[in-house]
Write a protein that binds this DNA or RNA. Structure first.
Length: 279
DNA sequence: CCTTGAACCTGGGCGC
DNA sequence: TGCGCCCAGGTTCAAG
């Protein structure tokens, strides 16, 4: 996608979760895409005019890439007919190395949204100013989380989903990381911190578990559920490796544990855990 | 400031 | 077949 130019941005409805931002449809006209990025669960597309298109996939959104089929003489490209799918809401018509390319945003549930922000104001934008550190890279340490959790009575499950504490974790990976670290999702976040504000051992384990879960999920190609696909259309396979998520009443996979995975509801979200080995 | 719960919107699965 | 209900990957706002 880098070094592609936008020939047109096709909006196939007026809104997603929110109305498309003012001026989004006019973003075309040969603007160059400098690069793609991510912050927490927000995807970013940097343009050469200093703006960033920020998109969030909500719960059901996805991007896919389509290229013209077959071989072709220069200047003669054609896409397969009838490739538009239900819930294709936004289509980037791109030109890359003189070849056309389509990038399509699809979102059945329309919980996703896009924003257009100036790059220089990105870090001060309300959506991004209060995000916690990224778990991958070297930005996150146990003591940073300890500082955030000190004195907090909220369950550790809820604290990990709170993007102000740590960026980018969703319900699946929080459940999986807590199981790996053998921490009960109901445990109060503050109990993972010593009186002097340092991380206790379980919190140290939790950091490792979070990094491992994310690394393995990326390695496996994501956790796509149901009909969600990667950009080439194949399914993500991390879902086949869940230890507790969506495995209510299954045996806890930890060696010799013998417990049974349970589902509870915390802050309106399902939590899956093993009451036997997570304390 | 902290915490919880509802709202946003659509589709799939299930029981009746 | 159809209807109603519950559930779902997330964020944000209001209220206690």
């Amino acid at each position: 996608m880098e070094n592609a130019t936008i020939q047109a941005l096709e909006l196939r409805r007026p809104d997603l979760r929110f109305p498309f931002p003012e001026g989004l449809g006019q973003i075309a006209g040969g603007k160059r895409i400098l690069g793609l990025g991510r912050r927490a669960k927000f995807l970013t597309m940097d343009f050469d005019d200093g703006h960033v298109l920020v998109s969030h996939l909500g719960m059901s959104g996805s991007y896919r890439v389509e290229r013209p089929e077959g071989s072709h003489a220069p200047g003669e490209f054609h896409f397969a007919k009838g490739t538009a799918k239900a819930h294709d809401h936004m289509v980037f018509h791109l030109l890359q190395n003189d070849r056309p390319l389509r990038v399509i945003y699809n979102d059945p549930r329309r919980f996703g949204y896009v924003q257009l922000v100036e790059r220089r104001l990105f870090n001060d934008h309300p959506s991004f100013a209060h995000l916690g550190p990224e778990p991958i890279g070297n930005a996150l340490t146990a003591n940073i989380l300890a500082a955030r959790f000190a004195g907090r009575k909220t369950p550790i499950k809820s604290a990990l989903l709170d993007q102000r504490n740590i960026a980018g974790l969703g319900n699946i990976y929080v459940c999986e990381a807590l199981w790996r670290a053998r921490i009960s999702p109901k445990r109060q976040a503050g109990t993972l911190v010593t009186k002097s504000g340092r991380a206790r051992a379980p919190l140290e384990r939790l950091i490792v578990a979070i990094v491992d879960v994310i690394a393995e999920a990326i390695e496996a190609g994501g956790s796509s559920l149901r009909d969600h696909r990667q950009t080439d259309g194949t399914l993500g396979y991390f879902q086949h490796r869940f230890s507790v998520y969506d495995r209510e009443e299954h045996a806890c996979p930890r060696s010799k544990c013998g417990g049974t995975v349970r589902r509870i509801v915390q802050s309106g979200r399902s939590t899956f855990y093993c009451p036997r080995c997570q304390s």
